[in-house]
Amino acid sequence: MVVNKLGVAMDILMSAGLRIAGFYNYWVVISLMMTGFYIVISHGNLIKKIIGLSIFQTSVFIFYISMANVEGGSAPILNSEIVQYSNPLPHVLILTAIVVAIATTALALALVVRIKEAFGSVEEEEIQALVEKNKDAKAC
């Protein structure tokens, strides 16, 4: 009787575990996305902000690739011995997105470098203080 109950409990736990495992990717994606979002809105350092943005981007990549996965599937390269393939379309979208992301990140970094040269700082608050000071000086 006790063994039976234990077995039932184990079954429930196992199915709950599998259910959580089925959603685990999405939850990690959401956590990563929110981590990146937090860095972007709460940190003042512009380089750190760009790193936060790239974490955000990567979470979207992971989301798409997770959705492309099919259980028991294989990489989408045709072979007569394979019956089940993963979905190739998200792979294409993300592959190009990664390269576009690095190019746009480089552009953002170039802007940061120019900001550093112009203001002597990459901290948002210092830059804002400098801008305010310049405004006051002009008003006088």
Partner: peptide, 24 residues
């Protein structure tokens, strides 16, 4: 790229954050 940019923009980030609780 990040390393080269950091060499130019400074290695350490300042401690202060904008309204961390609100952001959280």
């Amino acid at each position: 790229l990040m390393l080269v940019a950091t060499v130019m923009a400074g290695r350490y980030e300042q401690g202060a954050r904008h309204k961390p609780l609100l952001a959280l």
